[in-house]
Simulated assay, not measured.
Amino acid sequence: MWGDALRENGQCWKRFCAPFRSVKDGSMMLVTTRCPEVTEGVRTMDPVILEGLKDDVFWNFFKLCVFGSESSSNHPELEHIGIKKLPKLRGSPLAAETMGRMLSMDLQASHWNFILQSELWELRQGETEILRALRLSYMYLPFHLKRCFSFCAVYPKDYKFQKERLAEIWVAEGFVEPQDICCQYFEDLVARSFFQKFNGRYVIHDLLHDMAQKVSEHDCFILRNKSDFDKVPQNVRHLCILPSSEFDDSNLLRLCKYTKLRTLICKINLGKRTCFVMDHWCTKLTRTRVMSCAFTNEVPDSIGNWKHLRYLEISRTCTLKRIPSTFCWLYNMQILYAKKCNLQSLPADFDKLTSLQKFDKELG
């Protein structure tokens, strides 16, 4: 559980627990968290503090991550280097896997010493030793992988990524092209344990997500509640708006001042007011390249102002019936997802979108 589980003065947690009030004697609920406020808010007994793996178990796991087996007899010098720095990882399997994959890229003592003696180990920014280790693994990624991974901080924890869809967005952002190279970048990040496969999709471990947010804190931001509007970085480039009953159009219009925005992911449904808000965004946020919205009943004529737009997704079922003719001014448009919309027709000049590579739709 995360701290936001206790939002609305704990009412969210109470609603979650409501179905479990009628249970058999002896039933129990196990809650895991890294948030002290959650511990105090939900516990009915003293918490059990989980420590890292014991040294011998951790060392064997670390060697497995680096060498592919628990034997390091062929690399005595590397074993000596690794043992000295192992305490820094505090027994965290994730830190061992991430750091181990990075060290396994080059089994030379000079490479290991360079990384493990890095001054990043000595950072004092309120981070845990584990986060510093993970940040170190990020710092030694190639630049193109850094940029692709740090962008993922705009998505919330536990988000399920689709490889091809994320690759399309990376291309739209201008991080790299063509898309098949982006898919290879994704696989490179998987190989380094920055993504983990989960039920056919991919997730980012919570600690790695924390690290991604740390390294991209001025570029990426997630709006979860009304108070977050006062925390948005002035030069933010990638923004995600999560569903909240606190949001209304007056809040969302405040985003018009962030004119450097390139990515806008909007997960809320304002009903008939959606077009009104989008009209203002299209007028003011003219550098937008990627727009993903959950719902809109109408696309405003002002969308023609988004000359840099390359990716547009309308993800949920909605009553959108037409696309305005000004949409055909978007000569950089590459990807359009509108499969769940009730489109009746397309503009006459739709064939002028010469950069369009994919249009996923069903015409009524």
Rank of each mutant, 00 (worst) to 15 (best):
S355G: 02
L264T: 07
L141C: 02
L116H: 00
L50C: 08
L346F: 12
V290N: 00
W112R: 07
L116G: 00
F175A: 09
T319D: 13
F247Q: 01
I241D: 01
F143R: 12
L330A: 02
P142N: 05
R21N: 09
C183W: 01
N269F: 03
F247H: 01
A18N: 13
A172I: 09
I49Y: 07
F161C: 01
H75T: 04
H75S: 06
K340L: 08
S110K: 13
N225G: 10
D106Y: 04
I314R: 01
K272L: 08
L239G: 04
I335P: 00
G26W: 08
F143N: 13
C17A: 13
V42S: 08
E97K: 15
P47G: 01
L107V: 04
H144R: 11
S72R: 04
N342V: 03
Y331E: 13
S110R: 11
K146P: 12
R147N: 07
E164T: 12
S27K: 02
I115A: 02
K267H: 11
P178Y: 09
S302N: 14
M333S: 05
D55I: 10
T263D: 01
Q179G: 02
Q125D: 14
L50T: 05
P87M: 05
D206F: 06
Y331W: 10
C341D: 03
R201M: 03
H280K: 11
G91H: 06
L94I: 08
S27W: 03
E187G: 10
C12P: 00
A167P: 04
K352R: 15
A96C: 02
S118C: 00
N60E: 13
C183A: 05
V57E: 15
F247S: 03
C220M: 03
G100Q: 06
V31C: 03
S302R: 14
N332E: 14
L363M: 10
H209F: 14
A167H: 06
C183D: 06
L120S: 10
K163T: 08
R310A: 13
F198P: 00
F114D: 13
L6D: 03
L166C: 07
H218D: 15
N297Q: 13
P36Q: 07
K63Y: 14
L309S: 04
Y331V: 14
W112D: 04
F114R: 13
T39Q: 11
L343E: 05
D210C: 09
K88A: 11
H75Q: 06
R135I: 10
A338M: 08
L270W: 01
G126M: 09
R273Q: 14
N60K: 15
L208H: 02
D219I: 00
Y159K: 14
K361G: 05
R322E: 12
C152Y: 01
M333Y: 05
N332Q: 11
D25V: 06
F143S: 10
K84E: 15
S302Q: 10
L6R: 03
R43T: 13
T296A: 07
Y138N: 05
M29L: 15
F195E: 03
M99E: 02
R21Q: 01
L86C: 02
R316H: 11
Q344K: 07
D210F: 08
I204S: 01
H238Y: 15
Q117V: 00
N113E: 12
R101H: 09
E298N: 12
I181F: 10
E177V: 08
G126V: 02
I49S: 09
M333P: 04
Q196S: 14
I241S: 06
